[in-house]
Each structure stands twice: as C-alpha cells, then as structure tokens.
Design a protein around this nucleic acid. Structure first.
Length: 633
RNA sequence: GCUCAUGUAGCUCAGUCGGUAGAGCACUUCCUUGGUAAGGAAGAGGUCACAGGUUCGAUUCCUGUCAUGAGCACCA
C-alpha cells in the first residue's frame, strides 16, 4: 500500500507501485493526456517513473514552470534524431537547453549549413508525427561506453568515460535513437510541436581549439505556436529597432576602429544626451545631491587601497608618466570619497550626497562590446551617499521612489527589482555582508517592493539592488542600482565625528538610476523605435516652406520657436513639400510645420505629426503652448 | 577573451571560378516653384579593412592583424 500526496494536500492510496502517468490518469483523462513529466518528492522525473513508496507527487503539464525546459531538452533530442536519420554517420555530442531554446553539437564529415536546416526541421516534424514513445533505461558506465562505441558514437563514449565507474547512467530512447541524458523527457515525440531551427555555428569539441571542429545547430522551442510566433516576431521587431541602425539612420552617433567600444556623439545624439543629463541634473538637485566632477586618471596606489587592484584590475586601463602608474577610473566611488575627505564632517551633516555624471573607462572583453549598450567608456549618473547605519533605510526608500518616478517619466512602467548577494570574489567579512544584505532587504520591505534574490551577483564591495526595466517589446534591461558598502569608507579613510566626539566611518551607498547614459539612450532608442517623445527628440519641429515665396515667413516661424527654447529647424530646400515631409518624418521629427500662402497671410502654421496626423492650422502661439505642455518634465 | 561568420562608394548591397569594379538612395549642377511620405536630367564619387605570402598579375586564393556581427563567458 502506498500513499500519494498531491500538491493540494489530498492523498490517494494505491495498492501497487504506480507511475506518474498512472497517478495523473487516476485524477482525470485530461490531465493524463497533458502530462509531460512529474515531480516526486521535489525531484523532476519522467511521466513513466515508477513510484514504489509513499511520496508527494506533482504532475508537470505545459502549465508548469518546469515544462519549457523539458520540452526544449526533448526537442534537442528530436533534432539529434532527425540529423542522424538524414546524415548517417553524424555523431551527437552534447545538446543542452539555453535561453529561448537549445543547441546540439554534431560531428560530421562536413559542417552543416543554413541550407540543411529546413530539411532537418522537416524530418523533426515527421518524427513528431510518428509519436515515438520516449523510454528511459539504465546502464552501468562501462556497459554504456560499450553501447555507444558499438553505435560509432565516439564522442558520447568519451563523455561517459569521464563519469565515475560506479555510477549508473540513464539512457533515453525514441525509435532508433538513443542518447545519454539525465532527463526527464516528454513521454512521446508527439508532445513536441512549436520549434524552429535558427542557425548553425562552429564549435570545438569541449570548447578546446586543439580539438576537432563540430557543427552546432541552434533551435528555439516553445509551449505553443503562439509563443513561438511571439518570439520570432520579437526578434524581427528587435532587429528593426536596433539602436545601431537607428543611430546611423538618425545621425546620432558612430563608432570606429580607432576607438573600439567608445562613442562619437554627433549633434543629434548629443542633443538627446543633453536632455537626459539636464533631466537627471534636476533629479540630483531635487533629492539633495551636490554635483561634482573628479579627475579621469588617479594614481594606482588609490586603487590598491580601494580594493579595485585586487578585484578589478583586469578590467582597468593603466597609463604611466614619470615612473608613476595611473589608472583610468573604472568607477567614481573612490573620487567621491576623496571629495568627502576634504574637511571634517559632523554626524549632523549626514547624509552627505555626492553625485557626478561620472565618466568611467573599463577594459571590457572585446566580445562583450555591443553598439552603445556595452562600451568601454561610458558615463554614469553616479551618486554616493555617506550616512550612518541608521539612515540606510530611509535613503534606500527615498531613492527607490525617485528611481521609479524617473523610469515612469521616460515611459517605462514595468520594473523588476532584484537583490544581488555576495559574490565569491569580495572584500570584507561575512558579518559585514550579513548586515549589508539585511539592510537592503529591510529597506525594500519597507518600500513595499517585491524582489527576487540573485546569489553571487553582488559587487565585490557590497550587495546591490538592481532595477530592471521592461521595454516596449518585452525585453528587460538592467539600469539602476543601489548598493550598500561598509568597506570602501574604511579603506579610504572616510570619517565623521559622532555625538560622543568619536571618529566613525560612515556607510557609503552607491546608487545610479539610469546606470550608463550611453546604454540608457540605446534602450530609449529601441523602446521608442527611434521616435522619441518630443521632450527628448533631437529636432522637435521642422518648418517647411512650399515655395521660395514663403521662405522668409518660414524662417521667421522657426526663429520664434528657437527663441522660445525649442529645437526647431527650417527646411527651405527647393524640393516638393511631399519630399521634405517624407524625409523629416523618416527622421522621426515629432512635428512638421508647413507654411504657404494661406499661413503667411493669416500668420498661422499648418501642423502635422511624424505619424501623419493632421493637426490643422493654428497660430504660432497656440503651437508654442502645445509644445510647452508636451515638453514639460 | 572563446567559437563561427563578415569587412566592396556617405548609406544599403550586387559582383569578380585571379586580368585594378557596379546598382539604388544620398551628394553636386541644371531644369522644375510644386499644399502634406520620393518631380526630371546630367555629373562626380571606391588603394574592394590593414599587413604579409603565392602568382606574370590579388579586391578575388592563403596566412596574420584589426574591427564588426551572432552566440558563450562577463557586465552599467
């Protein structure tokens, strides 16, 4: 007699060992059909897993969070089988699940090409239609080695030989295809449907360039066709919105070989930057920060004291002069401590908030560089709050509210908060980390925030709250951060005098809202597909004349707008108005003003938006008022 | 940094099985003065990323370097 406990707490007795599938069937035919796998006493298992003792059992269906990974893994096997059917002699090696899908590495007499993918995909669909049962079996290590050698699967055999001899290995078989795998897998190939092969790439066996070259085939797999389509649509949409493309089209910035990972801002891009910076400067002012500016290059001895030398050296650029070594600053915190250290501080002055549009240079790995999203030289809206331990909570909650307001002002309303905890490579003892992590948790709770925790992801000097913004096509970007640091003030000798005339080290909070100006602008461009809100648009309005007879009036209207502080231009080129409209609309200029005889006579402007909406005629003051309302922030 | 791919006119791309290159858009000039997403004609524009090698001859083949892209790892 065994007793199965279901997730709702109900118990079901069975007088014989049962499989997960049978448990599902005892609950209902629908559930039995939907069963992909199971969880027995918290352990993921196949639907066919036999349960011989009292256990808690959960049925995994497409609705379960674990389902997608199982489906993707089974789809990888499906692809392996299809490849071996089409290309006899191809050996399978490893086939893991990755973000959005899976890949499988193959050894074959020639590399696979993109032209092979449709054929493989078609074969995969045939195998799905065959609804082959997927069965699990167990072999000893040596038997497994012999089995795969017998099939000519040298790579598989080599993998297994690396596993201790006393371990039993599970094999999964569907039709003529057998692979070594931990599982679990779907009960039959008919459960797989929404997948697509994406691309091929070369990869060395075991990632070692002295080994043989394999072909890696990437695929994506989803619970249903709707999710698959949504994913493919997102990829397409993301490509259209790529900030590198928009940056070129709208003449915002460029990058070139002589300065890899750095940005040449053109006038249009710099106009966006100026808006962002002015806005953030206002945030500094409203929330009690003093804005400062520190040097780019500081003696290496400072970075040794701060801990960067030991923990961050490989990411730093160094330069020498007269036998002294200097570091180009990768972070702004030490500089701010040096500013704080000028003069003596009383506890009465705390918190002291120091902020900077701090330009940082980091020697990022070349493969990490990506447009203006991931660069080697970037500017942070970086601030450091020097406070007492008792002030941490109120500072963090105030920061949180401010940050959320900023994200909302830029048009982002879905923000996820994560708490990154102590990494392996860190300074300071566990007791200090306990305090720092507890302080952030307490502040987040008080702010009424839901958060997820990321063990091992913190900065080397302290844990951090991370703000992730979701953009208009569903991607998440890490932007803001709030970090508690008990270490740096002590290392760099920051002090204040407490109520008892004793010198104490303040706590240092590192915080940023947009994170990197470069990345944030990149995110904005992709979020808005280049069509920035009027207050951020590099050119807000272009005045177009119809013929030369209206040139003077057009110039006068544009000048009025410029005088009122708007970014207005005039386009007097000898072109048809349709041509000029098309051009400026494609440049995503929010408003286009057309002036001809009618407007000149009545002193009005004809206004249309970049999307083609006709706002009709209005007088210049009316337009100025509209612009004023729209650009107020 | 690793793997693979890519690098041709300002931009987007063709092309050359080895004999120094072409389109569209943009640009210049001329015609056209036209009311809401491309008016017409002519013209100019390229050490084919860089450095070596093979060759009578290399943009093309080979090697290396640099950069970029995709993925991995890393991260703001």
């Amino acid at each position: 007699m065994i007793e199965i406990t279901l997730p709702d707490g109900s118990k079901r007795p069975f007088d014989h060992p049962v499989t997960v599938q049978e448990v599902a069937a005892s609950i209902g035919a629908g559930l039995a059909k939907a069963t992909l796998a199971g969880k027995v006493d918290g352990q993921l298992v196949d639907a066919g897993f036999p349960i011989g003792h009292d256990a808690s059992v959960q049925i995994i269906t497409e609705k379960s969070p674990e389902a997608l990974e199982i489906l993707r893994h089974s789809t990888a096997h499906l692809m392996g089988q299809a490849v071996q059917r089409l290309f006899p002699g191809a050996q399978v090696t490893i086939g893991p699940v990755i973000d959005n899908g899976f890949y499988y590495d193959f050894a074959y007499e020639r590399p696979f090409t993109p032209e092979d993918l449709p054929k493989i995909e078609a074969e995969m669909h045939r195998i799905v239609d065959e609804r082959l049962p997927v069965t699990r079996s167990v072999k000893s290590r040596d038997a497994a080695v012999a089995f795969f050698r017998g099939l000519g699967e040298e790579y598989k055999a080599e993998i297994i030989e690396g596993i201790p001899a006393n371990e039993e290995l599970s094999l999964y078989t569907q039709g003529e295809f057998t692979d070594l795998c931990r599982g679990p897998h779907v009960p039959n190939t008919g459960k797989l449907h929404s997948f697509k092969l994406m691309k091929v790439a070369g990869a060395y066996w075991r990632g070692d360039s002295s080994n043989a070259m394999l072909t890696r085939i990437y695929g994506t797999a989803w619970l249903n066709d709707k999710d698959l389509k949504a994913y493919l649509y997102q990829l397409e949409e993301a490509e259209k919105r790529d900030h590198r493309k928009i940056g070129k089209q709208l003449d915002l910035f460029h990058q070139q070989e002589e300065s890899p990972g750095m940005v040449f801002w053109h006038a249009n891009g710099w106009a966006i930057w100026q808006q962002l910076e002015q806005y953030m400067r206002g945030v500094y002012q409203k929330s009690g920060y003093q804005e400062v500016r520190c040097p780019q290059i500081l003696d290496v001895s400072l970075w040794k004291k701060s801990g960067h030398w030991d923990n961050y050296k490989e990411n730093m650029f160094f330069t020498e002069s007269e036998k002294r070594t200097f570091a180009v600053k990768p972070m702004n915190c030490p500089g701010h401590v040096l500013v704080y250290n000028q003069g003596l501080h009383s506890y009465r002055e705390l918190p002291i908030r120091i902020a900077e549009f701090g330009s940082c240079t980091r020697n990022e790995p070349s493969g990490a560089l990506h447009g203006i999203m991931r660069v080697r030289a970037f500017t942070q809206d970086d601030g450091h709050i020097f406070c007492t331990p008792g002030q941490i909570e109120s500072e963090v909650t105030a920061f949180h509210a401010q940050a959320m307001q900023v994200y909302a002002d830029f048009g982002f309303d879905k923000i996820e908060v994560a708490l990154a905890l102590r990494p392996d490579k860190r300074i300071g003892g566990d007791d200090v980390w306990d305090r720092a992590e507890a302080a952030l948790r307490a502040a987040l709770s008080r702010a009424g925030v839901q958060w997820t925790e990321l063990p091992g992801e913190g900065a080397f000097y302290g844990p951090k709250i991370e703000y992730h913004m979701r953009d208009s096509i569903g991607r998440d970007w890490q932007v803001g951060t709030m970090q508690v640091d008990f270490m740096m003030p002590e290392r760099l000798g920051a002090e204040y005098v407490d109520e008892n005339s004793q010198k104490q080290h303040p706590v240092m909070l590192h915080r940023a809202i947009v994170g990197s100006m470069e990345r944030f602008i990149g995110i904005l461009l992709e979020h808005y597909a280049g069509a920035l809100p009027t207050w951020l648009a590099p050119v807000q309005v272009v005045v177009l004349n119809i013929t030369d007879a209206h040139a003077a009036y057009a110039g006068q209207v544009a000048q009025t707008l410029v005088d009122r502080g708007f970014r207005a231009q005039v386009d007097l080129r000898n072109e048809k108005v349709g041509y000029k409209i098309r051009e400026h609309a494609m440049q995503k200029v929010p408003y286009l003003i057309v002036v001809g005889d009618r407007e000149k006579e009545t002193g009005t402007v004809a206004v249309r938006t970049r999307t083609g909406e006709d706002l009709g005629n209005m007088n210049v003051d009316g337009f100025i008022e509209r612009m004023g309302t729209e650009t107020r922030h």
